[in-house]
């Protein structure tokens, strides 16, 4: 496993920064050979993870810190880690259920999107300490001659 490229950034827990975060990660991910649809899916999962940090991790409290680390591995695999230092998730099993949301105005699709559009999703959360979501996806183009 070789790291092709890596970027790390942090920002305040402001709704305005959700668009900034997905734009940054989308631009970085475009270094991998992939389609515009793939980039849209990456932008979506970043939007979901960062929104979760702001809304659930920090209860919409402004001025807290969200960190993002993005790694391109072996030119074709993207790993994204979104981390907050908020209240954490007390019942992780329940939070990962499709359509579950602790907020009435939300749809509870965040983790479903992350799981559906990425190959791997790992959520590590400690009540009172925060949550880290690790997402990974491989974009290797299949060699049609091998499949034939």
């Amino acid at each position: 496993m070789n790291v092709t490229n890596f970027v790390k950034f942090e920002f305040q827990s402001l709704p305005e920064n959700v668009a900034f975060a997905r734009a940054c990660v989308g631009a970085f991910a475009s270094q991998i050979e992939c389609t515009l649809d793939d980039i849209e899916e990456i932008r979506l999962v970043v939007s979901e993870a960062v929104s979760n940090s702001i809304i659930h991790g920090y209860n919409n409290r402004r001025g807290e810190k969200v960190e993002i680390m993005v790694t391109i591995i072996d030119h074709d695999t993207l790993e994204i880690i979104v981390k907050d230092y908020g209240k954490g998730i007390s019942n992780l099993e329940q939070a990962l259920e499709p359509a579950y949301s602790s907020e009435p105005g939300r749809m509870g699709m965040g983790f479903t999107f992350m799981r559906s559009f990425m190959d791997e999703m790992e959520v590590i959360s400690q009540p009172g300490e925060g949550t880290s979501v690790r997402l990974k996806r491989n974009f290797r183009v299949r060699d049609e001659s091998v499949l034939a």
């Binding site: 932008r43 939007s47 929104s51 105005g105 939300r106 749809m107 699709m109 999107f113």
Partner: peptide
Amino acid sequence: SFIDSSGLGLIIG
């Protein structure tokens, strides 16, 4: 040009 689960929540709400 883009929608996530917050936007879906707006519609469903």
